[in-house]
Design a protein around this nucleic acid. Sequence first.
DNA 1: GAGTATCTGTACAGATCTGTACAGTAATTC
DNA 2: GAATTACTGTACAGATCTGTACAGATACTC
Lengths: 187, 187
Amino acid sequence: MLRPSKKEEILQKSLDIFYRNGFHATGVDLIVKETGISKTTIYANFKNKEALIAAVLERRDENFSCWLEQRVNHLAQSEQDKIYCVFDALEEWFNEPAFSSCMFIKASSEFQERDNTFYMQSVQHKLKLKDYFLNLVKLAQLPNPELVANTVVMLKEGAIISAHLSLMPHPAAHAKTMLKELVSNLK
Amino acid sequence: MLRPSKKEEILQKSLDIFYRNGFHATGVDLIVKETGISKTTIYANFKNKEALIAAVLERRDENFSCWLEQRVNHLAQSEQDKIYCVFDALEEWFNEPAFSSCMFIKASSEFQERDNTFYMQSVQHKLKLKDYFLNLVKLAQLPNPELVANTVVMLKEGAIISAHLSLMPHPAAHAKTMLKELVSNLK
DNA sequence: GAGTATCTGTACAGATCTGTACAGTAATTC
DNA sequence: GAATTACTGTACAGATCTGTACAGATACTC
């Protein structure tokens, strides 16, 4: 059996490299160079580059969902507050030096066919988050939770693009304000 | 002198191919195959693939801005209505069979370095549209035009991603509703 | 410490990609 | 209709990319 630590190392470092450098633009030789792990070992752990990308996206999905939930739980003062704290967490993310848009927006930009595995993984990630938002909205006992969850999705995606392209200052804060105003109209 | 029509043909058809297939994933040989124009002629008109992409993005910027302005002018019942009709135009765009996200979101996904030419072209395109929205907001005599223009940008980008990944039904209509509610709170 | 599993390094096959060379063809110009 | 200009087609150099082969080194196991 291969030791799990090597596979983990390849996965984690590849995640960074693909996030930073893109999918098509990143060759396996670059991963070899930046990880210091031989190409033979990489191909012993992952059938091919596609399998590595699939694993990277799966891991990213877990990492991001987990991180977001933890930050929201930490930042929120109450159950009602959680849905708004999503945007405080986003602001933290945008302010990280390594922030460079959302990995799944980038994946679905490079792999656009509807039947492409990576495109579908991207959709699944976004729908999973939408479902999480739906739960938070219900937790806050807001009316019309499906609609509000869609609102949160729209604001989140808009904020990510706005942050990535520096289209405005503090996009997440602005999105949070927008959400609060929209919710106050519902009541 | 080369006839302008060939250069035009290369440019227009390349635009479609890059939009559909991505930048890294599209080789010059594919452009040769799909245009029926020889590689020699392509390289006679464009110094290299980079120059072709730059020209494609420039053209896309012109096409999209022009198309949006025309659709808004056609759809709007009044000057005050124009800013909201941006989202009616977006809905039309999303419903086109060939719709596949925004070319500049995709360009900035594939070319992420801040000093990359294509990344910068993408930012410029988005800022140009933001300026157009600012003018429409002022035309509608809304308070705090800078803020509302940012709101429009955020909703537009969020709607594009939501449409591309099919995260909800009618994202543009939802965004339009959101904008109207937010504006009604300002007054 | 012998044997086994894991990893490295290099080398390379085969595909693909950018960009160029060049001979020949079609169209324009004078 | 001769000369120039624009375009095609093929071929290819050189770089790069995926994936494999294989010999040797290193670490783990009993």
